[in-house]
């Protein structure tokens, strides 16, 4: 113990400095650190460490999966055989469908004839996934860090102001489900507030009943659907998408699926636990939506 140094003034000085910085930060006189010039230096380092972490993770997972791989190869080989046979059958069906389509085209070009099943033509003229891609402008980004505080759910991505990113822009990933919104932007990186952050609130819609509500993040990584009117239908496995209300987010982005209804009939609003559409543990690459129909140009901070 006698070897330990004693500098009685050091502790009060350091605490005073940290306290002053904190007070200035709380009074918004200095920006959050992620917006400051330090982020320009930290971002490449974070990318380096994140890349190393991913490599280690891949290595661990590969080693763990090695034993299963042989069995999976055999299973997959059987599936390939079955699918080859199924593929042959589908090709036959495709040829059949082509013939039906020709018949229906003929019907539409000759309206004087009485035909059945004209709504099939209507379906073929509907929007496909390509339209969605054309309407949406996206920026692809890699996840490079998580927030050090266990009470916040933020990710850092390697695109920022330089790439046209603004606060409030929606971020999708993992099968194009909504993962959150851009919370802070700096030159070369941005902080994404995840849907599961306890301070995240998103206006949503139940696909089957068109009921609207709000999804709030939960500390345990689930989502809490609330404010659904008692008169609207809500059941387990209902799909939840963004409603687009308020213009902060485009409509129809998948949010999750109703896992459990937690409210009773006596309550004013229905509430449920929603399983997110995205596995937040496996987010590596995301897409930031920079423009979309029905999304206001002046984006609001989440």
């Amino acid at each position: 113990m006698n070897r330990r140094t004693s500098r009685p003034l050091l502790a009060p000085i350091l605490i005073a400095i940290a306290g002053i910085v904190l007070v200035l930060s709380l009074s918004s006189q200095i920006p959050r650190a992620a917006e400051g010039p330090f982020s320009v230096v930290l971002t490449p380092l974070q990318q380096l460490f994140s890349g190393a972490g991913s490599a280690v993770n891949d290595l661990i997972r590969s080693a763990g999966e090695l034993q299963d791989l042989r069995q999976r190869v055999q299973t997959l080989q059987r599936q390939v055989d079955e699918l080859s046979i199924e593929n042959l059958r589908l090709r036959e069906f495709q040829a059949e469908v082509r013939q039906y389509r020709d018949l229906l085209n003929f019907a539409s070009q000759n309206p004087i004839y009485d035909v059945v099943g004209a709504d099939v033509i209507g379906l073929s003229a509907g929007c496909g996934p390509n339209d969605a891609n054309r309407l949406r402008a996206g920026v692809c980004a890699n996840v490079i860090a998580s927030d050090p505080s266990p009470f916040l759910r933020y990710l850092t991505i390697n695109v920022g102001r330089q790439h046209g990113i603004q606060v409030g822009m929606p971020v999708v990933g993992g099968g194009l489900g909504l993962i959150g919104r851009v919370g802070q932007v700096n030159e070369t990186s941005s902080q994404v507030q995840l849907l599961i952050d306890p301070n995240s609130y998103v206006n949503v819609q139940v696909v089957s009943s068109r009921a609207t509500g709000t999804v709030a993040g939960q500390s345990d990584g689930s989502l809490h659907l609330q404010n659904v009117p008692q008169t609207d239908a809500l059941s387990v496995d209902d799909i939840i998408v963004t409603s687009g209300l308020g213009g902060a987010l485009p409509p129809q982005l998948p949010v999750g699926r109703v896992e459990r209804i937690i409210s009773t009939d006596a309550e004013l609003f229905k509430e449920a636990i929603v399983r997110p559409a995205v596995d937040f543990n496996r987010i590596e690459i995301v897409l930031v939506i920079t423009a979309a129909p029905n999304m206001t140009t002046t984006l609001q901070a989440p």
Binding site: I20, S25, R32, A33, S39, Q46, S149, T156
Partner: peptide, 12 residues
């Protein structure tokens, strides 16, 4: 510097 908490909170 890497957090979304108010600056200074972690160090304090």
């Amino acid at each position: 510097l890497t957090s979304n908490l108010p600056v200074g909170l972690m160090s304090l």
